[in-house]
Every structure is written in C-alpha cells, then in structure tokens.
C-alpha cells in the first residue's frame, strides 16, 4: 500500500534540529513547531529536538488548558517515539531555573548543559528554531 510519504522526493539524510524556546500557549509557535516535526518525521531525516528557555514548559506534565479554551497538545509529544523521533534534549539551565526536573516531563529526555548543547548544535546541518 502506498504511504503518503512515498511520494516525497528522494534526498540525502541530513541532521535536522528543532529548537523549541517558547511556552506552549500564548503564541502558536510551539504548536506549529510540533506540526513541522511530525510532518518531517516522514522524510526519515536525522532529527533532534531541543527544549530550552520557556520551551521546557511544552513538555511539562499535567497541563490543563480548559480555562483558556485552547487545545492541550502536550500528549502529542508522547507520540513522537512512534515516529522514530527519539533524540530529545533539554537545557539543564532552563529546567533548573524553572524549578523543574525530568520527573516533571511527559517524555524521556536527556539533560545537557549549555556547552553540550552548543556542541550538539555545531553538528547540525539544518536548525529550525521556534
């Protein structure tokens, strides 16, 4: 059976990094970033996700958006593993300065300090920052 992504053009595998820097609600950047990541997964590229600054709140457990009338899209992050998006990194400084630990997050992540994140960014070929 033809899958939708089988129509996509062939190309080399490149290292794509998505840097999520903003809070999940208040602006649409986080949601539309997640939409890019989900579509991009079909292209079988080497994908890395980074959560830093207020972006760490995107994957915080226990989000309740009823009162603001916006869809809670945080469960979608748990689906990323099914799309082979498994390299998730969080900034140690961003996490700690917000009083969070990895136990507060909806997905398993690796915590990196800013020097390690900088080194990881250095390796990338395409960086999309939202």
């Amino acid at each position: 059976m033809a899958e939708p992504w089988e129509d996509e053009p062939e190309g080399p595998v490149r290292k794509f990094m998505y840097v999520n820097r903003r809070a999940p609600y208040g602006t649409i950047y986080a949601l539309e970033s997640l939409e890019v990541v989900l579509i991009a997964a079909a292209f079988e590229q080497d994908v890395t996700l980074v959560f830093m600054d207020d972006g760490v709140f995107q994957i915080k457990k226990g989000q309740s958006t009823e009162a603001i009338g916006v869809k809670n899209f945080s469960p979608t992050y748990r689906a990323l593993e099914g799309y082979d998006v498994e390299k998730l990194y969080v900034s140690r400084e961003s996490l700690e300065s917000r009083g969070l630990t990895t136990d507060d997050l909806v997905v398993p992540v690796q915590v990196l300090d800013k020097d390690q994140l900088a080194a990881l960014m250095e390796e990338q070929e395409v960086i999309l920052s939202f």
Partner: peptide
C-alpha cells in the same frame, strides 16, 4: 502546499536562512 516543501528545502539547499 504542505510542510514537506519546507523539509525538502532543508534537504536540498546548502543553507536554509530563517
């Protein structure tokens, strides 16, 4: 068109300038 066009641009181009 779809977001796939953005990913393709990232794959095919020497630089994606944002």
């Amino acid at each position: 068109s779809g977001l796939g066009q953005l990913i393709e641009a990232g794959i095919q181009s020497d630089r994606l300038v944002i």
